[in-house]
Nucleic acid binder design. Structure first.
Length: 196
DNA sequence: GTTCTAGAAC
DNA sequence: GTTCTAGAAC
């Protein structure tokens, strides 16, 4: 995330005189208010459909409180995170025939803490790049349970080193359901259909 | 995060 | 010649 985006988030996303459009990294704040995207809502939490789903089922779970990302979490947020877990359970119960994963990106691009709930098929026209793939299928994707445990244990989430992040994004493509190693993204996307 | 597209890869 | 990836976007 750029320094500029961070500054915007800290200042409450106001617009400067010269700036006509909000920075793209603030997009989730608008999506959270979009009735067409909202799937479910509680006192503390909003669940939206991802605008560019990377699998057949792809939701985002976000707090209404202004928590920027996982690295701003503290012990006091454990109960909020436990609600995330309950909401994940209820969605998994709703989609009995699908396997869903819940987790957070180690270095999210978009502001406002958001937990992905995503089906393992990874079949979607919006899944296009190696970075898309590796952000959900490598350890860049931090499972919900791991984050909850780490927060309970340490009271904060340890940042991923930049070089680790870079090498995870450069990981060669590999199927998330078998040992198939595709040559490129189109080949991977074709292959994923064979698991359907 | 997405879009666009130059030029690498095939 | 076409497909595919990767970097810029003021």
């Amino acid at each position: 995330m750029s320094k500029r985006a961070l500054k915007l988030s800290e200042e409450g996303a106001h617009l400067s005189a010269k700036q006509s459009k909000k920075h793209w990294s603030l997009g989730l704040l608008d999506s959270m208010k979009d009735p067409d995207l909202i799937y479910k809502e509680t006192e503390r939490v909003v669940i939206i459909r991802d605008k560019y789903p990377k699998a057949k089922i792809h939701y985002l779970v976000l707090p209404k409180d202004n928590i920027t990302n996982i690295y701003k979490l503290e012990k006091e947020h454990v109960s909020l995170l436990e609600e995330f877990g309950e909401l994940f359970k209820s969605i998994q119960a709703e989609y009995k025939s699908h396997i869903l994963n819940a987790g957070f990106h180690a270095a999210p691009s978009m502001l406002r803490l958001h937990m992905h709930i995503i089906s393992k098929d990874m079949v979607s026209p919006c899944l296009k790049t190696k970075v898309h793939w590796n952000s959900f299928t490598t350890t860049f994707f931090k499972p919900y349970k791991d984050i909850l445990e780490e927060l309970k244990e340490n009271g904060f989430i340890k940042k991923m080193e930049n070089d680790v992040h870079k090498s995870l994004m450069a990981t060669p493509l590999k199927c998330n359901q078998c040992n198939y190693v595709p040559k490129n993204m189109p080949q991977l996307k074709d292959h994923l259909l064979s698991h359907e």
